[in-house]
């Protein structure tokens, strides 16, 4: 589907309101594709009242003000290949992926091997014009 920023946010909110404990949402897409915007929507749908800021710097942000605990990973700075996997180990990803909260992973393609099989995979890319994004869910 092709969505603009507002629609992407609304899509995230709908998704967030339906999520069950233990779900991992794997987001892929280049810079500016809307990963954090979608994450903001999902958080809002979960009832998170905190401001969702980009986790690029801290690599992981945690929010407990919603219906379920939300952890928001960004593996952008962990590097590629082995470095990303080791970095995820250091962050203790298993506790989050296999815990009772909801986990959103940005740049999930860098840590594909670690994702649970039942993760919701959402890929974002530039749409037909600069205001829109193509969203593919699998």
């Amino acid at each position: 589907m092709v969505l603009n920023e507002r629609e992407l946010m609304e899509y995230g909110m709908r998704l967030g309101s339906e999520l069950a404990p233990g779900v991992v949402i794997a987001l892929t897409g280049e810079l500016g594709a809307g990963k954090t915007t979608l994450a903001k929507g999902i958080a809002k749908g979960l009832g998170v009242t905190d401001e969702i800021t980009s986790p690029t710097f801290t690599m992981i942000n945690e929010y407990t003000s919603g219906r379920l605990p939300l952890s928001h990973f960004d593996v952008y700075r962990l590097g590629e290949g082995e470095a990303a996997l080791v970095g995820m180990e250091e962050l203790g990803y298993e506790e989050y992926f296999f815990g009772d909260g909801v986990t959103i992973v940005e740049w999930a393609d860098l840590v594909e091997q670690l994702l649970p099989e039942d993760a919701i995979r959402i890929s974002l890319s530039y749409g037909p014009d600069v205001e829109t994004r193509e969203v593919v869910v699998s």
Binding site: T36, T53, T56, F57
Partner: peptide, 17 residues
Amino acid sequence: KTRDDAAGEAYDKVARV
């Protein structure tokens, strides 16, 4: 404070692009 990306983060990402 920032509501999304930090200023330095925007710099890093623009540099990458």
